[in-house]
């Protein structure tokens, strides 16, 4: 344990000393597809166009408000920017069977995966849901936001449009 901690401390200090790159790539974790198959998150991409990764759950009311509000304007977003929304449900075995019927029942057009034991959530350092990440065409995470209030989707869309035009984004 001590040695492992030590090794980690060295790597950590090395990284702090040398790290210059603040861009972030999408980590690798295994999630489930809606028909029970396995999918590795390192394969997430949108052919050079912006992508939004949103963590939600069937029991999270602000998450559902956000994704239902965006669903109404999603066609327009896609047409305008080519963006793709990837909705990651963190529902576990208790509710994961209800995810596909909910998504279809609400008519969502998002790409949906399930992360039943929080592996991708942990890898992405998500504390609470909803948590939204904006990914540029090179697959780098350039912006993130925790929580949802009515109107937050407007800010997200403005940033997505910037990305689609190839502009840089800063917080």
């Amino acid at each position: 344990m001590k040695n492992l901690t030590l090794l980690f401390a060295i790597i950590l200090s090395g990284t702090v000393m040398f790290a210059q790159n603040d861009k972030r790539s999408i980590p690798s974790a295994n999630v489930k597809t809606l028909n029970g198959g396995s999918f590795n998150t390192s394969e997430l991409n949108n052919d050079g166009k912006p992508m939004i990764i949103n963590f939600w759950a069937t029991w999270c009311s602000p998450c559902k408000r956000e994704l239902n509000n965006i669903a109404e304007v999603y066609d327009e977003w896609v047409e305008e920017t080519g963006v793709k929304i990837v909705a990651i449900s963190i529902d576990d075995a208790r509710n994961m069977g209800k995810v596909a019927p909910y998504v279809n029942g609400k008519g969502w057009e998002y790409e949906v995966y399930i992360d039943p034991n929080g592996d991708f959530k942990r890898a992405m350092n998500v504390n609470n849901v909803p948590h939204t990440f904006l990914v540029n065409g090179n697959g780098e995470i350039v912006w993130q936001h925790n929580s949802y209030s009515e109107g937050d989707e407007d800010e997200l869309y403005e940033l997505t449009k910037k990305l689609a035009k190839g502009e840089e984004i800063s917080h």
Binding site: L12, A19, S25
Partner: peptide
């Protein structure tokens, strides 16, 4: 060389 190798990695985290 070691520096380059280590800095090509990423470090991320969260706090509560």
């Amino acid at each position: 060389s070691l520096g380059d190798q280590i800095s090509s990695g990423e470090i991320h985290g969260n706090f509560q």
